[in-house]
Each structure stands twice: as C-alpha cells, then as structure tokens.
C-alpha cells in the first residue's frame, strides 16, 4: 500500500511540475510563435498579392471583430497611401477547405490579387489553383460588389480543366472575402484613416 501511494505521489508531482513549466513557457512564447507563423506561413502569400506595395504588409496589420471571430487584415501601401487590404477567406474544395488571401483596393473596390494559401486538392488538377498563376490572375480587377463565379455558373472565371469543384471553391472563397469586406467596410476604412495620420 505504501509503495502504491509513493508511486502515485511521485508521478503526480513530476507531471504537475512538467505541466506547470510547459504552460508558463507556452504563455511566454505564444506571441513570438504567432509572429513567426504569420511570417513563414502567411507571409509569402500576403507579400505575393501585394507585389507593388512599398511597405511590409505583414508588419502593417490590424484586427477587427466580426461577430465572434477576430479577423486579421494586412495593409499594403500603393502609390504612397495605405489603400490596399488583404484578408483571409476559405472556400469548400474537393478535399476540404481551400484557404485564400484576397487583396482589395479600398479606393476602387476592385481586387488587387488573390493567392491560395492552404489546400489539399489533387496534385496536377485542383492543385493548379495554387501553382498556376494564370488562374489566380483572372480575379484581378474583379469588383467586390458582385460575387466571383466560374463561367459554368454564369461568371467570368475560366475554371481549371478537370477541377471545376476546386475552381468553384476558389471563386466561392473570393466571394466570401467580398462579403466579409463589405460587412466590415466602415471599420476597415476607419482603421486605414488612422494609419494615414
């Protein structure tokens, strides 16, 4: 009996100490880790959609509350003024979510560029949404006031051959981004105005 108690006490003690150490370490590194994830995971796509930006869009960002969700917006400076915002959205693809970064010019209300960030689509077919720049380029200049659609659905985006579902997912994701943008437009413009000062 004494041995049993001893075992339980020692193991509990070690586990508690370990848990406490890790929890405090996690809390203290959390901010830096988030920063690194932004830099390495989203960074390339955000910089990709803001090719002509004169600032670092990763460094210039703000967060807004959208109902329960907190969304991050990246700001790109075009022609000397912070007028581009990039936001993340997702569409339902063939094998799960297709993550996107969509950049919008707040002055003209048109798309600056889009890029696929994460996906699990079929290599060689749906995966072209990320690897073939010509597909993503079609969204350039699209107006945020009407949803993006592939030609089969009466829109203007040529679907990737053999990957209509993925193409619809991208178009749907871009349209989602449009609705989020339209919904939060007053707050976004407010934030941009603050940045100009």
């Amino acid at each position: 009996m004494r041995e049993l108690i001893n075992m339980v006490v020692v193991l509990t003690g070690i586990s508690l100490a370990s848990g406490g150490l890790l929890a405090s370490l996690r809390a203290s590194t959390q901010e830096r880790i988030d920063q690194q994830v932004l830099e390495f995971v989203k960074g390339p796509s955000v910089r990709g959609v803001f090719k002509d930006a004169t600032n670092d869009p990763i460094a210039t960002r703000f967060q807004l509350k959208d109902g329960q969700i907190v969304r991050t917006f990246f700001v790109g400076e075009l022609e000397g003024s912070p007028r581009g915002v990039a936001l993340e959205a997702a569409g339902k693809g063939y094998k799960g979510e297709v993550g996107l970064v969509v950049a919008v010019d707040t002055q003209t209300g048109k798309v600056i560029g889009i890029e696929v960030t994460t996906h699990s689509e079929t290599p060689g077919l749906g995966a072209k949404a990320k690897t073939d720049p010509a597909f993503a380029a079609q969204f350039k200049g699209a107006s945020v006031s009407s949803p993006a659609k592939v030609t089969q659905d009466g829109g203007s985006i040529n679907a990737i051959s053999g990957a209509t579902i993925t193409s619809r997912a991208v178009a749907g994701g871009v349209s989602n981004a449009f609705t989020i943008y339209e919904r939060l437009k007053p707050q976004i413009e407010q934030k941009l105005k603050e940045l100009r000062k």
Binding site: L11, S18, L25, T29, I33
Partner: peptide, 30 residues
Amino acid sequence: IPSKVRIVAFIVVIATFVIVVELVMQAYTY
C-alpha cells in the same frame, strides 16, 4: 522515483524537455 514506474517518469521528463525545445524553436528558428 519508484523503480516500478521509472520508465513512465523518464518519458514524462524527456517529453517535457522535448516540448521545451519545440516551443523555443518555433519562437526563434521557425
């Protein structure tokens, strides 16, 4: 450490330090 549960105790200790390494690497050498 009682000898009957030593392996479990060793794994807890080793796993703790591995997670420390993982967190530090994520934070500084992503």
